[in-house]
Design a protein around this nucleic acid. Structure first.
Length: 892
RNA sequence: AGGCGCAUAGCUCAGGGGGAGAGCGCUACCUUGACACGGUAGAAGUCGGCAGUUCAAAUCUGCCUGUGCCUACCA
């Protein structure tokens, strides 16, 4: 351990060090979870990133918070499982591979289903590990030996088990309904997968439909005129006087020349537009419902690609956009287009490819969601699962209460194929856990499997237990389910959290997690969403390369206040990089001064200096704060407390105060005591900081001299606990006075523009003999830190001539300036101070002369105000004296 | 249309009924035996507006203004 100081460079260089320790942790199996091992379980499942994903700041924040918890809980002695993995991300992944094919001029149908899926797996082999490696760069301490993928064999088995058992319970059904159709992805989407966007350039077209009997016409409005080709009725409200006569009559649908009825339905709002609505059951959800009520014909005029079909007559083959234009033109020519209005409305887009969604009638699979939602709702209401911050519970309730059946079938190839077969001989449908060989009805072997796959979120919904081996009954499940906490962003509260709640309760009969911690979004420095098009994306990997993972981690932690978005800027990260460097240099300083030190040295029985008692007290308080904060997911409070303590107490004051003891060579007991306190304090700071900044803490910790009891890695050390024995409030009070006096001298120095190199004399006096006596013990320290030549502390001391005066903590501090400075400057300084004090004094005076205040305020508040009054009036008096003295000196 | 937030120093934010805080930035001085990615000191805010509750409001309540998001979707 010789030449320790040489091992640490002047500036911390994270690059090499981070890779080194991450490898070390993995080799020592520090992340591995053992269900057979001791310790109360603490478990989390990672929100599985898409295999197509590339690490962004949202991932970084999400995984950082989990990593802080995992590392903290390990240090607390818990048996920690952090389960990692990736999501197969059906549509997103399929799109990526389709794009590759497109580059070769091929479509997926050109290669066929089997070959295509092979290609997807191949792609996943090649690049699916990207995001996992990026998570490792961040320092994520997942148990990688357990990494899962939603398309794994085991997870696929879980998916099939759940599908079949839900089907058997009657909770899965198949039917023709209006769903959200993406004409580009060629698939149905769930309601959640549609993103609505406001279109300001929308139009509302009025169409005139002549009555079939020639007795007039009726005007309807639409934002999608091309759908009129599939109209099978016009609806009005039955109580609408304007149309009463027309109900039951027919109109002649223009362009198509079909006769369609006018029906009465409460769905129609008489106040809106003309009060009459065209009804297209095959292309609008509400119209579909109206159609069912009135047994209307259903005419599809569009195909799966968004092209008009044969039912659209002469318009067949046109795209929906071209058809719209043509229909408008043709209606205008017929003079059946009385008005076109500008109209602002919301249009649904595919969340994967942004194509405009078409409400489309088709045969799909649905999960009957009400029975599942009821349990998931009750579990949160009864507190089995807590959502933090709590205000998200309301959002959760609101959604769960208004939930609609979940369309789970997708017409894509990449995903879990629905385990349903159709007998080509007798038409029977078979839903089974095992692939059937023959039809149980007719024994025919001519079976055709359903081609649809399941919504990706169906398998993600099983994640908390499917990753632990369900439906087998595994040791992992027994030990770690339900998980302790789920850490996630609110953007997938419904997509994922809600589904896991429903599936967990359904399959495990128990909630999947005790806590759900919802964190904020990461935005840019002006609170804007980060996006490629805005060019304001901060790439976590570039940041890690530039500033180190610890700097990024500390920054995110420090700004992760509950319920508030994180506005991130590079300047801030570089600020916290400076903090990492500060810690690094405090460690260098420590190492330089404990070369001859035995780390087994104990504090017990040794006499501690005031600053030592104080720093131990403060460290103890900080420890309590950090523990309380981390237990309540207040990551920013933990980070702030550690920053404040490490920089502004440990470095700024304690290290300076302990230098004389460390540098001297006469009193060896004093020196080794100083070394012991220094060593132990730094070691404890490292353990406290480890969950947030694991790399730099490990590097320093490994370089420190080790005691026999220390484990191999800081990861395996115990998290510090607050200890009442170390509490020392008297030391804290005395130290506050010492610091106040030193600051007062520095203030005079600064305001007088005296250079730090200029040694000064000082005299401190005050009426409180006890306080003076206490302060006298710190004479040497004050001389040292305040850079004085001599210091007199005496309650009987007189003000030296030609001196500047300061007031702090009930003391008067005089610094003789003997022509060193311009007294006009000192005069101005005192005048400023007097003005400030007078303002403060009058505020306190007002309070104390208010009878109501005296009558109603609690006694301790009144006492405090009275104390303040006394202190301030004394201060005023002293200030006035000082000013007078100064005037005499300068003769003004 | 409903719901949830937010408005505090130039910037980004913490705090949350009894003396306005932090980081960055800014100004001045300083290479003092760890750190200039540093040290010391300083300037800077009627805590969005208007009412109310209270002895006391940045903090609680109501309204207003601005701003962000979520859910639903209206032809």
């Amino acid at each position: 351990m010789a030449n320790l100081n040489n091992q640490l460079e002047k500036n911390y260089d994270p690059l090499k060090i981070e890779a080194k320790w991450y490898k070390f942790w993995e080799e020592k199996k520090c992340f591995a979870a053992d269900p057979e091992a001791e310790g109360e379980p603490f478990s989390m499942v990672i929100p599985p990133p898409n295999v197509t994903g590339v690490l962004h700041m949202g991932h970084a924040l999400n995984n950082l918070l989990q990593d802080i918890l995992a590392r903290y809980q390990r240090q607390q002695g818990r048996n920690v499982l952090w389960m990692p993995g990736t999501d197969h991300a059906g549509i997103a992944t399929q799109n990526v591979v389709e794009k590759q094919l497109a580059a070769e001029g091929l479509g997926r149908h050109d290669v066929g289903r089997e070959k295509f899926i092979e290609k997807v797996w191949q792609w996943r082999e090649e690049s699916g590990g990207t995001i996992i490696n990026q998570l490792k760069r961040l320092g994520s301490s997942c148990d990688w030996s357990r990494e899962r993928f939603t398309m794994d064999e085991g997870l696929s088995k879980a998916v099939r088990e759940v599908f079949v058992s839900l089907y058997e319970k009657g909770l899965i059904y198949q039917g023709d309904y209006i769903i959200n159709w993406c004409p580009r992805c060629h698939t149905a989407l769930s309601d959640l997968e549609v993103e609505f966007e406001e279109h300001n350039d929308g139009k509302l077209w009025d169409l005139e439909y002549p009555l079939a009997d020639g007795s007039g016409s009726i005007i309807v409005s639409t934002t999608r005129p091309e759908t009129m080709l599939g109209d099978t009725a016009v609806a009005v409200n039955g109580s609408d006087e304007r149309y009463r006569e027309m109900i039951g009559k027919e109109v002649l649908l223009p362009l198509m020349n079909r006769k369609i009825p006018i029906v009465a339905d409460d769905y129609v709002d008489s106040e809106f537009g003309s009060g009459a609505v065209k009804i297209t059951p095959a292309h609008d959800a509400n119209d579909f419902e109206v159609g069912l009520r009135h047994k209307l014909e259903i005419i599809k005029v569009m195909d799966e690609a968004g092209l008009m079909n044969d039912n659209a007559g002469v318009y067949a083959g046109l795209t929906r956009e071209a058809c719209r234009e043509q229909v408008i033109k043709d209606l205008a020519e017929l003079d059946l287009l009385p008005a076109i209005k500008d109209y602002q409305h919301n249009v649904g887009h595919c969340y994967r490819c942004q194509t405009i969604i078409e409400p489309y009638l088709s045969n799909q699979w649905f999960v009957k969601i009400k029975p599942l939602a009821e349990r998931a709702l009750a579990a949160v209401k009864e507190g089995d699962t807590k959502i933090i911050p709590q205000n998200w519970e309301k959002t959760y309730f609101n959604w769960m209460e208004n939930i609609r059946d979940w369309c789970v079938s997708r017409q894509i190839w990449w995903g879990h194929r629905i385990p349903a077969w159709y007998c080509e001989d007798c038409g029977k449908m078979i839903v089974a856990r095992e692939d059937p060989d023959a039809c149980p009805e007719c024994s025919g072997t001519n079976l055709r499997q359903e081609t649809d796959v399941l919504d990706t979120w169906f398998s993600s919904g099983l994640w908390p237990f499917s990753t632990m081996g369900w439906p087998e009954s595994t040791a992992t499940l027994k030990k770690y389910y339900p998980t302790s906490v789920l850490v996630t962003g609110f953007d997938i509260l419904f997509f994922w959290v809600a589904r896991m709640m429903m599936m967990g309760l359904e399959c495990m009969d128990e909630v999947p997690f005790k806590d759900v911690y919802i964190h904020a979004l990461v935005r840019d420095e002006h609170g804007q969403k980060m996006s490629k098009s805005k060019g304001n994306v901060i790439d976590p990997l570039i940041i890690i390369d530039k500033y180190g993972a610890d700097a990024l981690r500390f920054t995110l932690a420090a700004f992760a206040a509950q319920g508030r978005d994180v506005s991130l800027s590079e300047a801030r990260i570089s600020g916290y990089r400076n903090f990492v460097n500060k810690l690094w240099n405090a460690a260098r300083f420590t190492l330089m001064n404990i070369e001859d030190f035995d780390p087994e040295t104990q504090i017990a029985g040794r006499e501690l200096s005031l600053s030592e008692r104080w720093i131990r007290h403060r460290l103890n308080r900080t420890t309590a704060e950090v523990v309380a904060a981390l237990d309540e997911y207040r990551f920013n409070d933990a980070a702030q407390a550690l920053y404040q303590f490490t920089w502004h107490e440990f470095c700024d004051w304690y290290l300076e105060l302990t230098k004389p003891d460390l540098f001297q060579s006469e009193d060896l007991i004093r020196k080794t005591t100083a070394q012991t306190v220094l060593y132990q304090t730094l070691e404890q700071v490292l353990r406290l900081l480890h969950p947030i900044m694991p790399f730099v803490c490990e590097e320093i910790w490994q370089t420190l001299p080790h005691t026999a009891a220390m484990p191999e890695s800081i990861m395996q050390t115990a998290f510090p606990a607050a200890d009442v024995e170390v509490e020392d409030f008297p030391a804290a009070a005395d130290m506050d006075q010492v610091m106040a006096v030193i600051t007062a001298v520095r203030n005079i120095r600064g305001e007088m523009n005296l250079s730090p190199g200029q040694r000064l004399e000082a005299v401190v006096t005050g009426p409180d003999a006890v306080a003076i006596a206490a302060l006298q013990k710190s004479t040497a320290a004050i001389i040292n830190i305040a850079r004085l030549t001599s210091l007199t502390i005496d309650s009987a001391a007189q003000r030296p001539p030609q001196s500047a005066a300061g007031l702090a903590a009930g003391f008067e501090i005089f610094v003789p300036l003997k022509g060193l400075v311009d007294f006009a400057q000192e005069s101005a300084r005192l005048a400023k101070e007097l003005k400030k004090t007078e303002k403060e004094f009058s505020g306190v005076n007002n309070k104390l002369s208010n009878e109501k205040f005296l009558a109603k305020a609690p006694p301790q508040i009144i006492e405090k105000e009275q104390g303040k009054h006394q202190e301030l009036s004394l201060k005023l008096e002293k200030l006035k004296t000082s000013i007078k003295t100064l005037e005499q000196v300068t003769g003004s």
